[in-house]
Design a protein around this nucleic acid. Structure first.
Length: 694
DNA sequence: GAGCACTGC
């Protein structure tokens, strides 16, 4: 095998296999299963975190901020809030909050803890995520998404109901985690009683410590207000094996590595990390194809794809136990790095790359770029092999390449559109966002671009304050400012019923399903079913047709037959209800253009309304017949996404919801407009560019 | 003729 484990004599030498003796079949039994017979109390006391319970509580008493460095499986997320509850931090009606970057984590951890405390979910232990409030007056331990806690700061700026706030998975540096860190640091100055726990991976602990330590003396550690404590994990060792020479085609190499493992290593499932759907489908197909050449008596190879866009049925297969005499090979995107946990993985193959979204402030466009992973990511990926027994991680790059990797990935806040963030910070009374205390500040040009957009939407005035009421309302709205703007304008255009449906459906992920392995623009059945919703004015009105048809049926079968995503559409209904509540509060009348006007006029009203918010994202067809477009504002070259209704239809002027740059820059979700509308609806933005129409 | 990594309010 062309992998070399550091510290061994040669690639593939027998010394590499020294862990094999330990991997006896008896050990394969799921780690958790072995302890099923223990009482909950015994199980809790088995966790590594338990040994440090007293020390942890002592530190929380004595430091404003405690940084907890804990590996996977040490029990910090479930146990620390319970220790705090038991130690009296929830008396006098105070609560302990624990934030998570993902909804699924908040709900599942809360369920687990309620079970441990033998109470009903929503009583002493609860969770809070968008659309689901499982808390009550009695709730003392509250798991929630970081976005929800941030939203609470708008209502209760000092977060006064909490005695302790634990920011879990802080090393992931999600957008809202980063904003919360800054806001909480500000709150600490006014609330010396508030305790903050930051849970992080090793590599970032020092940065959090420096950020939260208010001690100005460099010599007297006794005045520190922050401290670090480390918890050991409960993981099995994972051997890291590097490629002995650079790999030029990691897709092919990953396939070869699967067969190397399959023929030379004992039983145990394989997890492969690749960057995207296309690579994954290729590898899955190749593995099927080549596994036919395996000797008859060898174990069956079961290749399975894993990415977010899979249907629920496809996802179910992943979690089925591996049948006897078989080896699952899960070929996955980065989703398996933190979001999805798979049992039974013993071997990990890491291609060393990940697809990330990068925001370009010069053009306001987002690009999806394949970039090398960070060391932290590589470590996390390898760790996925050590959950049930000692495992092996095959890195499809050399050890030298590894040494050149960044320690951690670039935080989201440094590569996002900051317009919504700035609005929300301003709503909290943080006027000078450029001087806000970020753990790592976003680049200035990202800030400036966002400020310009907010100014052009009239959300900010000449001196950068929120306008009343528009800016205030946009800050409160749980949607992007441009989408918020059309919602608030929709009453004036007499099409609020339609715009709120469009906004809801734009807020959910893919409505149309692309079955894996099928080309959706070639498959006639899929194409025909999609065309029933199409209108020539573009995607927004087509999506409105989908929504309106869906609410008449609301059935999973109806969706399934039409290749529509039932879960996404159901979620759109919830989002629509929430948006309508906001519009009522903002005194926007609910009017249906389709009931008020004939179809043509209704379509015009809706498209004008869209233009009134998306004027900064307008484009015009190139006159050379290439089918390409240029943005009006920055003259950036764009194409129509092949999934769009308007693909190959040659519209002249369009506004678009978003751009995604892959091999080319593609506009997604676009609508045909008249050029005059731009100068009519956004004169402040286009008055100097009137000649661009010629 | 070409295609979206993953979250969150």
């Amino acid at each position: 095998m062309a992998f070399w484990k550091p510290g061994t004599i040669a690639p593939g030498s027998a010394v590499d296999r020294d862990t094999e003796n330990e991997t006896d079949k008896a050990v394969i039994a799921h780690a958790e299963q072995q302890f099923r017979h223990l009482t909950i109390k015994q199980q809790r006391e088995r966790l590594p975190v338990f040994k440090l319970r007293r020390e942890l509580l002592y530190l929380i008493d004595n430091y404003q901020t405690v940084i907890v460095v804990g590996q996977t499986g040490c029990g910090k997320t479930t146990q620390i809030p319970q220790y705090l509850d038991e130690a009296g931090w929830t008396t006098n009606g105070k609560q302990v909050a624990c934030t998570q970057p993902r909804r699924i984590a908040a709900t599942s951890v809360a369920e687990r803890v309620a079970e441990e405390k033998n109470c009903r979910l929503g009583s002493e232990v609860g969770y809070l995520i968008r659309f689901e409030d499982q808390t009550s007056q009695q709730t003392r331990i509250k798991y929630m998404t970081d976005g929800m806690l941030f939203r609470e700061t708008m209502i209760d700026p000092l977060l006064s109901r909490y005695s302790v706030i634990m920011i879990d998975e802080a090393h992931e540096r999600s957008l809202y985690t980063d904003i919360l860190l800054g806001v909480i640091k500000k709150i600490q100055k006014k609330r010396s009683d508030l305790r903050v726990i930051i849970s992080s991976a090793t590599l970032d602990a020092e940065a959090f410590y420096r950020f939260f330590n208010h001690n100005t003396s460099t010599t007297d550690k006794g005045k520190d207000t922050a401290t670090i404590i480390s918890l050991e994990g409960r993981m099995y060792p994972v051997d890291i094996l590097y490629s002995d020479k650079p790999v030029d085609d990691y897709v092919e190499k990953s396939i070869q590595t699967v067969f190397d493992i399959h023929t030379k290593e004992p039983a145990g499932d394989i997890l492969i990390f690749l960057t995207g759907r296309e690579e994954i489908d290729t590898v899955v197909a190749e593995l099927y194809e080549r596994s036919r050449t395996l000797p008859e008596r060898s174990m069956t190879l079961m290749p399975l794809p894993l990415y977010a866009g899979l249907t629920s049925e496809e996802q179910l297969q992943i979690f089925q136990p591996t049948p006897p005499h078989s080896r699952k090979v899960i070929v996955s995107t980065n989703i398996a790095e933190a979001s999805v946990t798979l049992e039974g993985i013993v071997y990990v193959i890491d291609c060393g790359f990940v697809k990330v979204r990068a925001y370009n402030p010069k053009t306001g466009m987002e690009a999806l770029v394949v970039t090398p992973v960070s060391k932290a990511s590589a470590l996390q990926r390898a760790g996925r092999a050590g959950r049930v027994r000692p495992g092996k991680a095959f890195r499809l790059y050399t050890e030298e390449t590894y040494s050149t990797l960044q320690d951690t990935s670039i935080p989201e806040i440094q590569r996002s559109n900051l317009a919504p963030v700035i609005l929300q910070l301003k709503a909290l009374g943080i006027d000078n966002v450029l001087r806000f205390d970020f753990l790592t500040p976003p680049p200035a040009e990202l800030m400036i671009r966002a400020l310009e957009l907010l100014y052009s939407l009239n959300a900010l005035d000449d001196v950068g304050r929120l306008t009343i009421p528009l800016g205030i309302h946009l800050a409160e709205f749980p949607v992007d400012p441009m989408l918020g703007k059309i919602l608030l304008a929709s009453g004036d255009f007499k099409c609020s019923e339609e715009i709120v449906s469009i906004a809801a459906i734009l807020s959910v992920q893919k409505v149309f399903i692309n079955p894996s392995g099928k080309s959706t623009t070639k498959d006639q059945t899929i194409l025909d079913s999609r065309r029933k919703f199409w209108v020539e004015e573009g995607d927004h009105l087509s999506l409105l047709n989908v929504y309106n048809a869906f609410i008449k049926h609301k059935s999973g079968k109806w969706c399934h037959d039409r290749f529509l995503n039932f879960k996404a559409l159901s979620r759109a209904i919830s989002i629509r209800q929430q948006l309508v509540r906001y519009l009522k509060r903002f005194k926007v009348p609910m009017i249906s253009a389709l009931k008020h006007f004939d179809n043509e006029k209704a379509s015009e009203q809706i498209r004008k309304c869209l233009t009134s918010g998306y004027f900064a994202q307008a484009a015009r067809a190139e006159q050379d017949g290439s089918g390409r477009f240029r943005t009006i504002r920055d003259n950036v070259l764009l194409s129509i996404h092949p999934d769009s209704v308007l693909f190959n239809r040659n519209p002249q002027w369009v506004v678009f919801h978003e751009v995604v740059e892959t091999n080319q820059a593609y506009m997604r979700d676009l609508t045909v407009i008249e050029p005059d509308w731009l100068t009519e609806l956004a004169p402040h933005f286009y008055e100097f560019k009137g000649d661009s129409k010629k």
